[in-house]
């Protein structure tokens, strides 16, 4: 893994914007990739590929998305506890989309640009010192 760029937020926004053919100014940290930016399932695959190429790392399937909430996605109560944490962490997110419980199948809708930034930072922290 390469050292992350200083302005990681800007770099990730650039990658997401390019994958989704958007103007980077339309892409905010709290933008839901699916609901706000129109990403579909193959776009997630595309974005992961671009992140892997750009930052020279391997992102195991599902890790990026599960990593935002360290929970068992098959436990409905755990999901809602994780969502409560996210509500505190992402006040700018359009939470009015979820008047009721979020539920397992809606979890991908919670993935934002920040989710990716946070994941990349955690990966750097977890990497052994001096490892490239």
């Amino acid at each position: 893994m390469k050292p992350l760029p200083e302005d990681l937020e800007k770099s990730v926004i650039g990658i997401v914007a390019e994958a989704l053919s958007l103007d980077p100014r339309e892409v905010k940290l709290h933008s839901s990739l699916m609901d706000d930016l129109g990403a579909e399932s193959i776009d997630f695959i595309d974005i992961v590929f671009r992140l892997e190429s750009e930052y020279d790392l391997i992102i195991p399937e599902q890790e990026l998305w599960a990593g935002s909430m360290d929970i068992d996605a098959n436990d409905p109560e755990a999901i809602e506890r994780g969502v409560d944490d996210l509500r505190r962490k992402m006040p700018d997110f359009a939470w009015e989309r979820f008047p009721g419980p979020v539920g397992k199948t809606n979890l991908p809708r919670l993935i934002t640009v920040s989710t990716i930034v946070d994941y990349l930072r955690r990966r750097v922290d977890a990497a052994p010192a001096g490892a490239s």
Binding site: A19, L20, S21, G38, I42, D43, D46
Partner: peptide, 8 residues
């Protein structure tokens, strides 16, 4: 439309 359709 949307523009990203072109990549496919």
């Amino acid at each position: 439309r949307p523009a990203k359709a072109l990549k496919l």
